[in-house]
């Protein structure tokens, strides 16, 4: 109805929607290389189960996913596919870059065929360091993303601005609504 993008949602409802969105993320696993094994351990094994956090690793296509975890080296050959699949995801979408190769090229920073970091192609929300990161490190990245989503200002996201929290937007609005303070005139009186 356009309430979210015009910023007209009442605060408790925004919090509820944010909480709902953060606890029901469908993650599209973009496993490219060794990090995919650790991602598989985090998503599929019973020990580091990710479904308990509300993240379901089973969307049938990117059009049904809200989160994509890029894990592994992004080669130049694969880069157009990454971009295309990212564009096929519906808003609001989030990206987690897992491992050194996806963060910035990693050990293959000098290679002719590696994209130095997936953030050259798509905007990334959380970077999980490691080579490969432990499955719990990926879970910590997901928990961090969930905390950011819970505080996120969705109206700003729909306007394509940078990530802002609800608290910051409220503070900005408050500052705008107060009149500008009177400038202090030193020396007394207007300039002749």
């Amino acid at each position: 109805m356009g309430l979210v993008d015009r910023g007209r949602m009442p605060a408790p409802l925004t919090k509820l929607f944010n909480m709902g969105r953060s606890y029901s993320m469908w993650v599209y696993q973009w496993g490219l290389a060794c990090c995919a094994i650790e991602m598989g351990a985090a998503f599929g094994s019973p020990r580091y189960d990710v479904m308990r956090l509300g993240v379901i690793p089973l969307p049938a296509s990117p059009r049904q996913a809200d989160l994509v975890v890029v894990s592994g080296t992004v080669t130049d050959k694969m880069a157009p596919a990454v971009k295309r699949l990212y564009e096929q995801m519906p808003e609001p979408k989030y990206v987690i870059s897992m491992g050194s190769c996806a963060n910035c090229g990693g050990p293959y920073w000098d290679s002719y065929s590696v994209t130095k970091g997936v953030d050259q192609i798509i905007p990334v929300d959380v970077y999980v360091p490691g080579c490969p990161p432990r499955p719990e490190a990926l879970l910590e990245g997901i928990v961090l993303l969930q905390q950011r989503i819970k505080n996120e200002d969705m109206a700003a996201k729909w306007r394509n601005e940078e990530f802002t929290t609800l608290q910051k937007t409220a503070a900005l609005e408050k500052a705008k609504s107060q009149p500008a303070p009177e400038p202090i005139v030193v020396g007394g009186g207007p300039i002749e």
Partner: peptide, 12 residues
């Protein structure tokens, strides 16, 4: 220690 993911890559 392994819990140091960051939302900005410069903080890494």
């Amino acid at each position: 220690e392994y819990e140091y993911s960051e939302p900005r890559i410069a903080d890494l």
